[in-house]
Design a protein around this nucleic acid. Structure first.
Lengths: 217, 217
DNA sequence: AATCAATAAAGAAATTTTTCTTTAATAAAA
DNA sequence: TTTTATTAAAGAAAAATTTCTTTATTGATT
């Protein structure tokens, strides 16, 4: 009886995935000056069941008022705090190729609590360059800089076949969480947090639905 | 009794999400010259249950051989076909800001069957520029170019508050699928395929686990 | 003041997804 | 040739997630 992933997770992952959208919606309402919002309104916006919304929000300290709804400002404040968007964490990115430099260009990460302090690569052509104000170093310098800059997250954007090597180095360097953008799955000690994000999975889902439509025609 | 999403979907979405990783693993084995691979090996690589792998692969035409496993080449061929990675589809991207230009820089999309033919924006500073060989046009030119270039997918990378407007325009232009990178949820007719991809949701999941660790300490 | 309608919240049921169990096949070993 | 061990596959059970139902609250309406 092997346990493949020890989920001692209070908040379901689908819930956390929906929360940033609740937040975005509430921020919009706040800008428009709306003070309260009901689960029905949020659900209508999200195309989901209203009880799903109340269940999701019940994981936070937000409480609604009968016949009134939730306070918009409370949703904004509590959710950004809850999702960790209001505290800035430092990260290093390894692999300043196409996807890596893509992420470096996205200043949205900054707004959501992630600061990429430096990037690393082995390609002499990119080392020394600055991408969107983030300097690219040789990967050998990771250790020293990680200690210096209090970095807790490593972002992997190298080719899939090198993902494990980079992960091993990150673990050795004392990183706490790894955001893995390659389709490769990495092996790390139990206390290291790994989040796999494969953009191309989303593409696969779209293609699958497109093909399904063709089948139904 | 309202139906919030008509899932007449044969293949479960979690299955499709795992498949690109199976593919990446199989491609690696193929390069190393390995001819067969067992569900146990794949499962070990993925950190999941072996029966999950067999179930997932059973949705395709791939069949395994008892005591031998699956043919690596079959996995590569069938999965890339199944996931739609072997046929090229054309897309337009609207919003050539940080995330948008980030995606334009990622040539990985090309390898997975998506060709971004053109980008659109309303910012005069970016219109006329080329990002990674993709030209940025004024959004008013979308309709003509979409017809001309046989584009079936629209990628939304504008600020969240403009997502619905862009979606409406895309639908009016006859797009079949929308890849929405904003946390905003968009409303479109039932026959339009929408895939929401919020990078920051993944960030939220990592932060949640990091904070959970703190709670347990 | 009484009634009505909209809502949050809690719990139950249904659905979906994952994990476990059993069976049958077959390559390798004895 | 027989036995053993490994594996895919199918089905059952368990777990997780979503949807439905009920209850209680309360602002709005009559």
């Amino acid at each position: 009886m092997v346990q493949y992933s020890k989920k001692i997770q209070a908040v379901p992952e689908p819930t956390i995935r929906r929360m940033p959208s609740y937040l975005a919606f509430a921020e919009g309402l706040l800008r428009k000056g709306q003070q309260f919002v009901s689960s029905t309104q949020i659900a209508n916006y999200m195309n989901i069941d209203p009880t799903q919304v109340t269940k999701d929000l019940s994981y936070t300290t937000i409480v609604g008022k009968t016949r009134v709804g939730y306070e918009v400002k409370a949703i904004v404040d509590v959710l950004s705090e809850f999702l960790g968007f209001s505290v800035m964490d430092n990260a290093f990115l390894v692999g300043a190729g196409s996807l890596g430099s893509a992420l470096l260009h996205d200043s949205g990460l900054n707004h959501f609590g992630l600061k990429i302090e430096a990037a690393f690569d082995i390609n002499p052509a990119t080392i020394g360059r600055k991408i969107n104000d983030v300097e690219v170093f040789h990967i050998d310098q990771f250790r020293d800089l990680a200690q210096e800059l209090n970095v807790i997250m490593g972002i992997i954007t190298v080719p899939a076949e090198n993902a494990q090597t980079v992960a091993d180095l990150m673990v050795a360097w004392g990183i706490k969480a790894i955001w893995n953008f390659t389709p490769a799955r990495i092996k790390v000690p139990d206390d290291i947090i790994v989040q796999n994000t494969t953009l191309y999975s989303n593409l696969a889902i779209i293609f699958n639905k497109l093909h399904q439509d063709k089948r139904e025609e």
